[in-house]
């Protein structure tokens, strides 16, 4: 759980970093970028053998994490037996620490929509508009695709719910993963806790800004 969780955290760093390239198109940065930086980054990720292999490892990581997560959740739920008539509630732990299975499920549902909206057309069916940037290499215009997808308020809402779920999943998961892996030094734990809170908030807000920026057309293809 801890290992796969940390692996997925590593993936998030790359994913949020590459996707944040869309913000190069912001009016006060480089309005003529028009998604070029992002499209090139996405093209790179899909066109080298190393990144394609990493993609398979990523899928395996997700699947392992989800299977382990549900196994853990199911086993642990059986351990109480009879329920308390008055529970401890929030007096001993945070609600999101107790809701990792639920939050993970929300992320999982989101992933299905997310993968079929972007990954399938870009890697399997290839039904995306082509675009080239002067060097003769034709690539998918994923930037345009993002813009189209995020015009639907329903999809934007789904993305925002998913970002909130991810945020809470990580608020607990980040530090928990290190504790699971045996970090018990008080100084490191304090540091990792702050780092975890920061990471969870920054990553989720950055992700959430993407559908928002496109929906309200702060950035858009020319």
């Amino acid at each position: 759980m801890g290992l796969t969780g940390l692996f997925l955290i590593g993936f998030l760093v790359i994913h949020v970093g590459l996707n944040a390239c869309i913000f190069a198109d912001l009016p006060f940065l480089n309005p003529s970028d028009n998604g070029e930086m992002f499209n090139r980054a996405a093209h790179f990720m899909g066109s080298t053998i190393v990144t394609r292999i990493l993609e398979l490892v990523l899928f395996a990581g997700f699947i392992l994490h989800i299977i382990q997560g549900y196994q853990l959740e199911i086993q642990n739920r059986k351990r109480r037996g009879t329920a308390y008539s008055v529970g401890l509630g929030n007096r001993g732990s945070k609600w999101y620490s107790r809701s990792m299975g639920l939050l993970g499920t929300l992320i999982f549902l989101f992933l299905i929509v997310h993968i079929s909206a972007f990954w399938v057309p870009s890697r399997i069916t290839h039904d995306l508009a082509p675009v080239a940037y002067g060097n003769g290499v034709e690539m998918h215009n994923l930037y345009l695709r993002m813009f189209e997808v995020f015009q639907s308020p329903l999809i934007v809402l789904l993305y925002l719910v998913a970002c909130a779920s991810l945020c809470f999943h990580l608020l607990h998961g980040f530090q928990s993963a290190f504790r699971t892996m045996g970090v018990h030094n008080k100084k490191y734990l304090t540091m990792l806790k702050s780092l975890g809170y920061g990471f969870a908030v920054v990553v989720s807000v950055l992700f959430a800004l993407m559908p928002i920026a496109m929906h309200f057309q702060w950035i858009k293809p020319d």
């Binding site: 853990l72 401890l88 007096r91 001993g92 732990s93 620490s97 107790r98 607990h172 530090q175």
Partner: peptide, 13 residues
């Protein structure tokens, strides 16, 4: 017994 998921309830009580 179940597995630890570090919710922290044990330490609090």
């Amino acid at each position: 017994f179940g597995s630890c998921t570090f919710t922290g309830a044990c330490e609090a009580v």
